[in-house]
Design a protein around this nucleic acid. Structure first.
Length: 415
RNA sequence: GUGGCUGUGGUGAAGCGGUUAACACGUGCGACUGUGACUCGCAUAUUCGAGGGUUCGAUACCCUCCAGCCACCCCA
């Protein structure tokens, strides 16, 4: 058996990479318009970083990380998400000393040891963005608008924005206690998973899919009604800003987060087209994270989106670019001329292909067609003598006589 | 991690104990010593995910492993 890739790790082949580049370029464009700058951080960090940021008791840290001991006996981990590393860099380089307000974005592979499924792999890719240093809900709204704009720009209308507020260390514990006592009275109706969640993360019972749990929690107290006045004002302002900019969203008070660091505003872009992999992008505010990691008390908000899932939503549309010209040749001498012509044209920005193996004219023309070249030209003895040739527009076969010079050909193909 | 389904060429697939392992697409070459797309011809799996076992015989049956998919769990 030939060697194969590691389970859950995929190759992105040339016919798909065009789509990926399109997603990445669109994100860069939209993010930079919003004033974000790219930060590139390592794909591996000390294990402790993730334990302290994501949370020791979360599923990600407990069972999904690629953690191992390196040759220097340090416990290191392949990043399961991007925010922790970005914030570590923000603190380590004291970026806040220059300006506490940083707007950063990143893209790259993340690693989680999960059972692979479509749209969910062990190495997957995220594009994320973070704003630090802004308490004002304006930042929340800008991030949400940026996300919405991004999806609009890549041509996807399907994922819809859902928002919620998780409160803060002031009000969340009280809500959690209220919810617990509500659940306690209905313990009998809950599924086994939810009985477990009752202890570990009671909020999770709110988005359980088991019918019994759905009816049992139907009248559960809503987080939004238990926010402290600060969180409540914040959330109202976020909504007001979204309304001001005509951003459409829905409120989902049952939306929960898998990472412990989130506070106040949380959100997801969800789709019904990817089965159980419905979240295409998600994020929220994390006001306590930076200080928790040993930095100053600076708030933050951000999100990450899953490239594999976005690529899936974009479908099989072809993003590959086609050659402008294919040069077919009749003999050895003509190949020399064609080669120099190709070289000159490429250097001046025309995408040119030619035959590599001295094949028959029939084969060369077939290849020109297969590569979807816009124009083709045959160079043989006649052309060598006259110094000009008939260029064929492949879409309709129209022939145009043009001199065999870089300038002449450029003018013809319109580059 | 749990449960289930699947695994035949580059792709989509038929075959379900003994076949030259269909068919379609794709790919290559040719039908015309100088022009692609349509048409036609030829070629293209010593082999049926891997390894064992049952059998006179296994792509087909059994076991193990590997991989993919679906749901759960969880999440982007």
């Amino acid at each position: 058996m030939a060697l194969t890739a590691v389970k859950g790790f995929n190759d992105i082949l040339p016919d798909e990479s065009g789509r990926w580049q399109y997603i990445e370029e669109t994100a860069r464009q939209v993010f930079e318009l919003n004033g974000f700058g790219e930060i590139r951080v390592p794909i591996m960090e000390k294990t402790e970083l993730f334990c302290r940021s994501i949370g020791d008791a979360t599923d990600i840290v407990e069972k999904e990380m690629y953690t191992f001991t390196d040759k220097g006996e340090n416990s290191v981990t392949l990043r399961p998400e991007g925010t922790a590393g970005v914030m570590r860099a923000f603190i380590e380089h004291k970026l806040y000393a220059q300006d506490p307000i940083a707007k950063l974005y990143y893209m790259g592979p993340m690693f989680r040891y999960e059972r692979p499924q479509k749209g969910r792999y062990r190495q997957f890719h995220q594009i994320g963005a973070e704003i630090t240093g802004v308490n004002d809900p304006l930042a929340d709204a800008q991030v949400l608008n940026m996300l919405t704009t991004f999806f609009h720009e890549i041509g996807l209308t399907e994922p819809t924005l859902q928002i919620n507020s998780l409160g803060c260390p002031e009000c969340r514990p009280a809500y959690r206690a209220t919810l617990r006592s509500f659940l306690e009275e209905r313990m009998g109706q809950l599924c086994e998973d939810c009985k477990r969640r009752f202890a570990t993360n009671p909020l999770r019972t709110l988005d359980c899919k088991v019918p019994g749990c759905i009816s049992a929690t139907a009248g559960a107290p809503s987080v939004l009604e238990h926010l402290c006045s600060g969180c409540d004002d914040h959330f109202s302002s976020v909504r007001r800003y979204l309304d001001l900019s005509s951003t459409t969203y829905s409120i989902n008070s049952r939306m929960v987060r898998g990472l412990d660091y989130y506070t106040r505003t949380t959100f997801e872009m969800v789709t019904g087209l990817l089965g159980s992999q419905s979240a295409v992008a998600a994020g929220g505010r994390y006001d306590g994270l930076i200080s928790q990691l040993g930095g100053p008390t600076i708030p933050g908000i951000g999100f990450a989106m899953g490239l594999e899932r976005i690529a899936l939503l974009l479908g099989t549309k072809d993003f590959a670019s086609q050659p402008d010209l294919f040069i077919a040749t009749m003999g050895e001498g003509e190949r020399d001329i064609a080669f120099c012509l190709m070289d000159g044209l490429i250097k001046s920005g025309v995408r040119v292909e030619m035959d590599y193996e001295g094949k028959s004219l029939k084969s060369q023309m077939r290849r020109a067609d297969k590569l979807k070249a816009r124009y083709s030209v045959v160079i043989g003895g006649n052309e060598l003598l006259s110094g000009s040739a008939s260029f064929k527009r492949m879409s309709d076969g129209l022939l145009t006589e043009t001199v065999l010079t870089v300038a002449g050909i450029k003018a013809l193909v319109g580059i």
